Amino acid sequence: MAVLQHFLPTLLLVALSLPIKAQFSLMGSAKNMPDGCIQLTPAEPYSEGLAYYNTLLDLKYDFEIGFDIYFGARDENGADGIAFVIQNDPRGNQAYGTWGECLGYGTWDRSRPGGTYIAPSIAVEFDTYQNPGQNDPDMDHVVYLEQGSNFHTIYFNNNDPAYNLEDNRLHDFRFRWEANEQKLTILLDGYTVYTGVKDLANDIFEGTTLVRWGFTASTGRKYNLQYFCLRQLVFNPSSDNTPLIYHSE
Protein backbone atom coordinates (compact mmCIF):
# COMPACT_ATOMS: atom_id res chain seq x y z
CA MET A 1 0.00 0.00 0.00
CA ALA A 2 3.01 2.33 0.15
CA VAL A 3 2.52 3.56 -3.39
CA LEU A 4 -1.02 4.64 -2.53
CA GLN A 5 -0.14 6.82 0.44
CA HIS A 6 0.69 9.84 -1.71
CA PHE A 7 -2.19 9.24 -4.15
CA LEU A 8 -5.52 11.01 -3.79
CA PRO A 9 -6.82 10.97 -0.19
CA THR A 10 -10.40 10.61 -1.36
CA LEU A 11 -9.84 7.17 -2.90
CA LEU A 12 -12.21 4.53 -1.59
CA LEU A 13 -11.64 0.79 -1.38
CA VAL A 14 -14.73 -1.37 -1.79
CA ALA A 15 -14.60 -5.17 -2.15
CA LEU A 16 -16.81 -7.26 -4.43
CA SER A 17 -18.07 -10.62 -3.26
CA LEU A 18 -17.51 -12.26 -6.65
CA PRO A 19 -14.40 -14.48 -6.89
CA ILE A 20 -11.70 -13.28 -9.27
CA LYS A 21 -12.40 -16.04 -11.80
CA ALA A 22 -15.95 -14.76 -12.30
CA GLN A 23 -14.71 -11.29 -13.19
CA PHE A 24 -12.55 -12.14 -16.23
CA SER A 25 -13.33 -13.44 -19.70
CA LEU A 26 -10.61 -15.87 -20.79
CA MET A 27 -9.33 -16.79 -24.26
CA GLY A 28 -6.74 -19.16 -25.68
CA SER A 29 -4.48 -20.78 -23.10
CA ALA A 30 -5.70 -18.55 -20.24
CA LYS A 31 -7.29 -20.43 -17.36
CA ASN A 32 -8.07 -20.08 -13.67
CA MET A 33 -5.49 -21.34 -11.18
CA PRO A 34 -6.35 -22.97 -7.82
CA ASP A 35 -4.90 -20.05 -5.82
CA GLY A 36 -7.16 -17.47 -7.49
CA CYS A 37 -4.56 -16.26 -9.98
CA ILE A 38 -5.04 -16.55 -13.76
CA GLN A 39 -2.60 -18.39 -15.99
CA LEU A 40 -1.98 -16.70 -19.32
CA THR A 41 0.41 -19.23 -20.84
CA PRO A 42 1.60 -22.65 -19.69
CA ALA A 43 5.28 -23.56 -19.96
CA GLU A 44 4.71 -24.71 -23.53
CA PRO A 45 5.77 -23.34 -26.94
CA TYR A 46 3.45 -21.38 -29.24
CA SER A 47 0.80 -20.48 -26.65
CA GLU A 48 -1.34 -17.35 -26.42
CA GLY A 49 -3.66 -16.41 -23.56
CA LEU A 50 -5.84 -13.39 -22.85
CA ALA A 51 -7.94 -12.29 -19.88
CA TYR A 52 -10.23 -9.22 -19.87
CA TYR A 53 -12.04 -7.80 -16.89
CA ASN A 54 -15.80 -7.96 -17.46
CA THR A 55 -16.66 -4.42 -16.31
CA LEU A 56 -15.45 -1.36 -18.18
CA LEU A 57 -13.27 1.37 -16.71
CA ASP A 58 -14.36 5.00 -17.03
CA LEU A 59 -11.50 7.39 -17.72
CA LYS A 60 -13.48 10.24 -16.16
CA TYR A 61 -12.46 8.84 -12.77
CA ASP A 62 -9.19 8.19 -10.98
CA PHE A 63 -8.14 4.59 -10.54
CA GLU A 64 -5.18 2.46 -9.61
CA ILE A 65 -4.86 -1.23 -10.41
CA GLY A 66 -2.41 -3.38 -8.47
CA PHE A 67 -1.45 -6.93 -9.24
CA ASP A 68 1.38 -9.45 -9.08
CA ILE A 69 2.86 -10.86 -12.26
CA TYR A 70 4.86 -14.04 -12.72
CA PHE A 71 7.08 -14.30 -15.80
CA GLY A 72 8.48 -17.79 -15.25
CA ALA A 73 11.79 -19.33 -14.21
CA ARG A 74 13.32 -20.07 -17.62
CA ASP A 75 15.75 -17.26 -18.41
CA GLU A 76 17.90 -18.11 -21.44
CA ASN A 77 15.22 -20.42 -22.85
CA GLY A 78 12.24 -18.33 -21.70
CA ALA A 79 9.85 -16.15 -23.72
CA ASP A 80 8.00 -14.04 -24.60
CA GLY A 81 6.27 -11.89 -21.99
CA ILE A 82 3.01 -10.28 -20.88
CA ALA A 83 1.17 -7.10 -21.87
CA PHE A 84 -1.25 -5.14 -19.70
CA VAL A 85 -3.78 -3.68 -22.14
CA ILE A 86 -6.42 -0.94 -21.96
CA GLN A 87 -8.53 -0.92 -25.12
CA ASN A 88 -11.83 -0.24 -26.85
CA ASP A 89 -11.22 -2.46 -29.86
CA PRO A 90 -14.54 -3.24 -31.63
CA ARG A 91 -14.00 -6.93 -30.81
CA GLY A 92 -14.38 -6.19 -27.10
CA ASN A 93 -13.23 -9.05 -24.89
CA GLN A 94 -12.49 -11.09 -28.03
CA ALA A 95 -9.74 -8.70 -29.16
CA TYR A 96 -6.33 -10.28 -29.63
CA GLY A 97 -3.02 -9.67 -31.34
CA THR A 98 -0.27 -11.83 -32.77
CA TRP A 99 1.55 -14.51 -30.77
CA GLY A 100 5.30 -14.78 -30.09
CA GLU A 101 7.20 -11.50 -29.93
CA CYS A 102 3.95 -9.51 -30.16
CA LEU A 103 2.75 -10.95 -26.82
CA GLY A 104 -0.82 -11.36 -28.07
CA TYR A 105 -1.10 -7.54 -28.30
CA GLY A 106 0.42 -6.21 -31.54
CA THR A 107 1.41 -7.58 -34.92
CA TRP A 108 4.70 -8.26 -36.65
CA ASP A 109 4.66 -5.04 -38.65
CA ARG A 110 1.62 -2.77 -38.87
CA SER A 111 2.91 -1.28 -42.15
CA ARG A 112 2.36 -4.63 -43.89
CA PRO A 113 -0.90 -6.49 -44.57
CA GLY A 114 -1.85 -9.52 -42.52
CA GLY A 115 -1.68 -10.23 -38.83
CA THR A 116 -3.89 -8.78 -36.15
CA TYR A 117 -3.49 -6.27 -33.34
CA ILE A 118 -5.53 -4.59 -30.61
CA ALA A 119 -6.58 -1.00 -31.27
CA PRO A 120 -7.53 1.58 -30.18
CA SER A 121 -5.37 0.77 -27.17
CA ILE A 122 -2.48 1.47 -24.88
CA ALA A 123 -0.35 -1.25 -23.31
CA VAL A 124 2.49 -1.94 -20.93
CA GLU A 125 4.79 -4.57 -22.38
CA PHE A 126 6.85 -6.81 -20.10
CA ASP A 127 9.23 -8.28 -22.65
CA THR A 128 11.38 -11.27 -21.69
CA TYR A 129 12.99 -12.10 -25.04
CA GLN A 130 15.06 -10.06 -27.48
CA ASN A 131 13.46 -9.58 -30.90
CA PRO A 132 15.48 -7.22 -33.14
CA GLY A 133 12.44 -6.55 -35.32
CA GLN A 134 10.79 -4.77 -32.38
CA ASN A 135 14.01 -2.89 -31.52
CA ASP A 136 14.41 -4.89 -28.31
CA PRO A 137 17.53 -4.50 -26.16
CA ASP A 138 19.40 -7.67 -25.14
CA MET A 139 17.90 -7.72 -21.63
CA ASP A 140 14.35 -8.02 -20.27
CA HIS A 141 12.57 -4.66 -20.30
CA VAL A 142 9.27 -2.80 -19.80
CA VAL A 143 7.74 -0.48 -22.41
CA TYR A 144 4.70 1.80 -22.78
CA LEU A 145 2.97 1.12 -26.13
CA GLU A 146 0.06 2.49 -28.16
CA GLN A 147 -2.30 1.36 -30.93
CA GLY A 148 -1.23 -2.25 -31.31
CA SER A 149 2.41 -1.63 -32.18
CA ASN A 150 5.16 -3.41 -30.22
CA PHE A 151 7.99 -1.45 -31.86
CA HIS A 152 9.68 0.90 -29.39
CA THR A 153 12.71 3.13 -28.99
CA ILE A 154 12.48 3.82 -25.23
CA TYR A 155 12.36 1.16 -22.52
CA PHE A 156 12.85 0.60 -18.79
CA ASN A 157 15.45 -1.86 -17.50
CA ASN A 158 16.33 -0.09 -14.21
CA ASN A 159 19.71 0.78 -15.78
CA ASP A 160 20.70 -2.85 -15.37
CA PRO A 161 22.32 -4.56 -18.40
CA ALA A 162 21.39 -7.93 -16.86
CA TYR A 163 17.79 -6.97 -15.97
CA ASN A 164 15.80 -10.19 -15.61
CA LEU A 165 12.08 -10.68 -15.04
CA GLU A 166 12.16 -14.49 -15.41
CA ASP A 167 13.46 -14.98 -11.88
CA ASN A 168 10.80 -17.30 -10.43
CA ARG A 169 9.35 -14.42 -8.39
CA LEU A 170 6.14 -12.40 -8.32
CA HIS A 171 6.59 -8.78 -9.42
CA ASP A 172 4.43 -5.96 -8.02
CA PHE A 173 2.87 -3.89 -10.82
CA ARG A 174 0.71 -0.76 -10.44
CA PHE A 175 -1.07 1.26 -13.11
CA ARG A 176 -2.39 4.64 -11.96
CA TRP A 177 -4.65 7.12 -13.79
CA GLU A 178 -5.36 10.64 -12.47
CA ALA A 179 -8.28 11.92 -14.52
CA ASN A 180 -8.17 15.66 -13.83
CA GLU A 181 -4.45 15.86 -14.61
CA GLN A 182 -4.77 13.29 -17.44
CA LYS A 183 -1.68 11.69 -15.96
CA LEU A 184 -0.74 8.04 -16.07
CA THR A 185 1.95 6.45 -13.92
CA ILE A 186 3.32 2.93 -14.26
CA LEU A 187 5.29 1.29 -11.46
CA LEU A 188 7.04 -2.06 -11.20
CA ASP A 189 8.52 -3.33 -7.93
CA GLY A 190 8.39 0.21 -6.55
CA TYR A 191 10.20 1.83 -9.50
CA THR A 192 8.54 4.31 -11.85
CA VAL A 193 8.61 2.69 -15.27
CA TYR A 194 6.74 5.44 -17.11
CA THR A 195 4.87 8.64 -16.37
CA GLY A 196 3.19 10.94 -18.86
CA VAL A 197 0.31 13.34 -19.49
CA LYS A 198 -2.07 12.35 -22.29
CA ASP A 199 -5.70 12.93 -23.22
CA LEU A 200 -6.42 9.22 -23.52
CA ALA A 201 -10.09 9.61 -24.36
CA ASN A 202 -9.49 11.86 -27.37
CA ASP A 203 -5.93 11.03 -28.44
CA ILE A 204 -6.25 7.25 -28.19
CA PHE A 205 -9.84 6.10 -27.66
CA GLU A 206 -11.67 8.15 -30.31
CA GLY A 207 -13.65 10.28 -27.88
CA THR A 208 -14.95 7.64 -25.48
CA THR A 209 -14.04 7.33 -21.81
CA LEU A 210 -15.31 3.76 -21.38
CA VAL A 211 -12.53 1.23 -21.91
CA ARG A 212 -11.75 -2.40 -21.28
CA TRP A 213 -8.62 -3.70 -19.54
CA GLY A 214 -6.85 -6.98 -19.19
CA PHE A 215 -3.77 -9.02 -19.98
CA THR A 216 -2.34 -10.74 -23.02
CA ALA A 217 0.67 -13.06 -23.18
CA SER A 218 2.31 -15.47 -25.57
CA THR A 219 5.22 -17.81 -26.16
CA GLY A 220 7.06 -18.89 -29.27
CA ARG A 221 9.70 -21.55 -29.76
CA LYS A 222 10.93 -20.62 -26.28
CA TYR A 223 8.41 -20.39 -23.45
CA ASN A 224 7.55 -19.81 -19.79
CA LEU A 225 4.68 -20.28 -17.39
CA GLN A 226 3.17 -16.77 -17.13
CA TYR A 227 0.33 -15.62 -14.89
CA PHE A 228 -1.09 -12.69 -12.91
CA CYS A 229 -2.85 -12.21 -9.58
CA LEU A 230 -5.13 -9.19 -9.14
CA ARG A 231 -4.56 -7.62 -5.71
CA GLN A 232 -6.51 -4.36 -5.74
CA LEU A 233 -8.43 -1.89 -7.82
CA VAL A 234 -8.80 1.49 -6.12
CA PHE A 235 -11.05 4.18 -7.48
CA ASN A 236 -12.44 7.61 -6.67
CA PRO A 237 -16.21 7.33 -7.10
CA SER A 238 -18.49 10.14 -8.14
CA SER A 239 -21.83 10.75 -6.42
CA ASP A 240 -23.64 10.36 -9.75
CA ASN A 241 -21.85 7.32 -11.14
CA THR A 242 -19.89 4.93 -8.95
CA PRO A 243 -17.66 2.56 -10.96
CA LEU A 244 -18.42 -1.08 -10.16
CA ILE A 245 -14.87 -2.31 -10.55
CA TYR A 246 -12.88 -3.41 -7.57
CA HIS A 247 -11.47 -6.66 -6.24
CA SER A 248 -9.12 -7.14 -3.32
CA GLU A 249 -7.76 -10.13 -1.46
Score class of each variant (00 low, 15 high):
N168I: 13
Y191A: 09
P90Q: 05
P45M: 00
G214K: 02
I82D: 00
S149Q: 01
A95C: 03
Q182H: 11
D136S: 07
L210Q: 10
V211L: 02
L103Q: 15
G207M: 15
F151R: 11
R74T: 13
F151G: 06
N159H: 13
K183A: 08
Q182W: 03
Y155I: 02
G81N: 07
N32Y: 03
H152V: 04
A79V: 04
Q134W: 12
V193A: 08
S25E: 04
D58I: 04
A30C: 07
V3N: 14
D240F: 09
H141D: 01
G36W: 06
P9T: 05
M1D: 15
R169V: 11
V234Y: 12
L188N: 05
Q87T: 15
V85T: 08
L40Y: 12
L8V: 09
G92T: 08
E44S: 14
Q39K: 14
I38P: 01
A2Q: 12
G148H: 04
C37W: 13
F67N: 02
H141L: 00
W99K: 08
K222Y: 07
G97R: 02
G115C: 07
V142I: 14
Y46T: 01
P243C: 07
C229S: 12
G100Y: 14
Q39A: 10
D136R: 05
K31C: 04
Q23E: 13
T41N: 11
P161T: 15
G214N: 01
S248R: 14
N164C: 11
Y155E: 02
R74I: 14
H171Q: 10
D109L: 00
F175P: 04
I65C: 05
L188K: 05
N164F: 01
G196E: 04
A179S: 15
Y129T: 05
I118V: 08
H141P: 00
P113K: 02
T208W: 03
I65P: 00
F228D: 06
L145S: 11
L59I: 07
W99S: 04
D35N: 14
Q226N: 09
G81Y: 06
Q134E: 12
C102V: 05
E44Y: 10
F175D: 05
N236K: 11
Q232C: 11
R74K: 13
A217G: 11
L59D: 08
E146K: 10
E44G: 06
P120L: 01
T208S: 12
N77W: 06
F156K: 00
R176F: 12
L184G: 04
D160P: 03
Q87E: 03
T185R: 07
E178V: 02
A179D: 09
Y227N: 14
P34G: 05
E249C: 13
L59N: 06
N32E: 09
I82M: 03
T98G: 02
D167F: 08
Y53E: 03
F173R: 09
L13D: 11
L225K: 11
T128V: 15
G196L: 01
A2M: 10
F24D: 00
K21D: 10
F126Y: 14
L4R: 15
F175Y: 14
F228T: 06
G49V: 06
Q5L: 15
G28W: 09
M27F: 08
Y105G: 01
F84H: 08
L187R: 02
I186P: 03
N157K: 08
